[in-house]
Nucleic acid binder design. Structure first.
Lengths: 152, 152
DNA sequence: TGAATTCGTACTGCAGGAGTCCTATATTCC
DNA sequence: GGAATATAGGACTCCTGCAGTACGAATTCA
């Protein structure tokens, strides 16, 4: 189902960006996968997307790889999510691309979520993670797919 | 893709609940579908889920249907999302059901999202929608599927 | 009692996306 | 120049959300 969730792609991207932000230099997708424990195939795809966004610079060939070129303090969660999907920021909610009626409560929901995603910067998550102030009370989404369990 | 999105199920549920909260009486899924413009087949399934949550009471037979029995002020967005999926609230983030490492930034993200989802009550969305204070600046998720466009 | 209505459940099909894999291209080093 | 390495880009498979349909069970009403 996953009615609301961050999927693996977002998770992996966040992990990779956090890793790179704390380490200088060039990292190949293979090495990055080894260090972070993420599946290499998907990580490669994600890194390519991030490079296309201009957040990473890629170098081919021997000793090549990716290097972080953006300040995570300037990147919002919305930008990350947008970068990784077929998502477009919308300037006006009353456009007609929605197939089913965009009812008022739905619009209100959009606005809230937009605000939330915009306000959270990736650096916030990295720094918060470093502080390890992690009490219980988080959320876990359980997918039905055996190997896909955590959704965000 | 849909890395982060409310899917149709959540949207439809919200629309249906908002509709019922502003109208008293019993509504069959057929009538509700007619009034809201939602597909009857999926709406019927959603209503059943909501009934199983105890938010609606169902009556069979002629003049049967569903009736809202919960105060939307007491229902959070998290509860709605949870009710509609194979989602379990998690009491401790370090359980071992996650297949990939739950890195610190990821945990921080979970906490933020959990907080957001918990704080937004369904009544907030209904009331906000009624005020029609809807300036531009919302978000639109564009799926590739032709008839599926808006994701939340 | 029987007909009409409505929920409950199961089954099916389709489309799109997540995730994997394979090949082509670019770069470095010997 | 050739081998090794790494990104670039596509093609492919599988899963699942969405939707439709059909039949059975429960309830009302004539």
């Amino acid at each position: 189902m996953a009615t609301l969730s961050f999927c693996r792609t977002t998770d992996y991207a966040l992990i990779a960006l956090a890793f790179l932000s704390e380490r200088d230099g060039v990292w190949s997708s293979q090495k990055l996968a080894g260090e972070t424990g993420l599946p290499a195939s998907l990580l490669a795809k994600i890194l390519k997307s991030l490079q296309q966004q201009g957040w990473l610079v890629s170098t081919r060939g021997v000793n090549g790889g990716y290097r972080l070129t953006v300040d995570l303090n300037t990147v919002s969660l919305l930008q990350l999510v947008t970068a990784l999907e077929a998502v477009e920021p919308c300037t006006c909610p009353d456009d007609k691309t929605d197939e089913y009626p965009s009812s008022p409560p739905l619009v209100a929901l959009k606005r809230r979520l937009h605000k939330f995603l915009t306000e959270v910067k990736l650096s916030d998550l990295v720094l918060a993670g470093r502080r390890i102030d992690v009490p219980c009370g988080s959320v876990r989404f359980t997918a039905k797919r055996a190997a896909t369990v955590s959704k965000f």
